[in-house]
């Protein structure tokens, strides 16, 4: 494990904690896309099917369980918690996320490392994660104003992706066996989706003003 990978995992965890904190403290999920959160829950459930078949490390198993549990907790809050549920604006969150699920699964059927149940679901989760942020970005763009915690949530998620790319470069240079084209290419696509958001996030930070996305 290198420093970029660890920092990437930590910012990923931090992003989820920021979101949970926001929902818990304000009892509101305004500005949060339920669809993106459901896609992430599907991503983790599909990718970590290997929890039952492979053991890599205590750290790995622990983090997998944390990611599955926290993503399900967020979806539960938005769908079931009476106060949080009321703040959900489904008219803003209209992205047709099932299309992303269908397209990712189709792609996984054709592009995978091995034609097995686990490998297809693993590839599916990689493709779906790459695009899962789209409903959230569209929602933010629609509502224009982004509250601080939601902005930080997306910022930490983007930072996690950027750090994973550094991690791959590091591993590519230091580990002779390191080849994982599916994850790396999808990861670069995913990070590119954040570029626009990062640009406006940086501008607002530089001007010390509230984050606003152009319509």
């Amino acid at each position: 494990m290198n420093i970029f990978r660890l920092a990437g995992d930590m910012t990923h965890l931090l992003s989820i904690l920021v979101l949970l904190l926001k929902i818990y403290a304000t009892k509101s999920c305004s500005g949060v896309s339920r669809k993106t959160q459901e896609l992430y829950a599907i991503v983790f459930l599909a990718r970590y099917l290997d929890l039952f078949t492979d053991f890599i490390s205590v750290y790995n198993t622990f983090m997998k369980i944390v990611f599955i549990a926290s993503s399900l907790a967020i979806v539960w809050c938005i769908r079931v918690h009476p106060m949080v549920k009321r703040s959900y604006d489904k008219d803003l969150d209209t992205f047709r996320h099932y299309l992303l699920v269908a397209a990712s699964f189709l792609l996984a059927l054709f592009l995978h490392e091995k034609f097995t149940f686990l490998e297809i679901f693993w590839a599916f989760s990689i493709y779906l994660e790459a695009v899962a942020i789209l409903p959230q970005l569209v929602l933010l763009q629609r509502s224009g104003n982004v509250d601080n915690l939601t902005g930080q949530y997306v910022f930490f998620l983007g930072a996690y992706r950027g750090l994973y790319i550094l991690n791959w470069i590091y591993r590519y240079l230091t580990e002779p066996r390191f080849t994982r084209w599916i994850a790396c290419v999808s990861g670069v696509v995913q990070t590119a989706l954040y570029a626009d958001f990062f640009y406006y996030y940086f501008i607002s930070w530089k001007n010390n003003s509230k984050l606003k996305l152009p319509a």
Partner: peptide, 10 residues
Amino acid sequence: DELNYNKDEL
């Protein structure tokens, strides 16, 4: 094997 080696990330 190679496949497992490729799955050590989260």
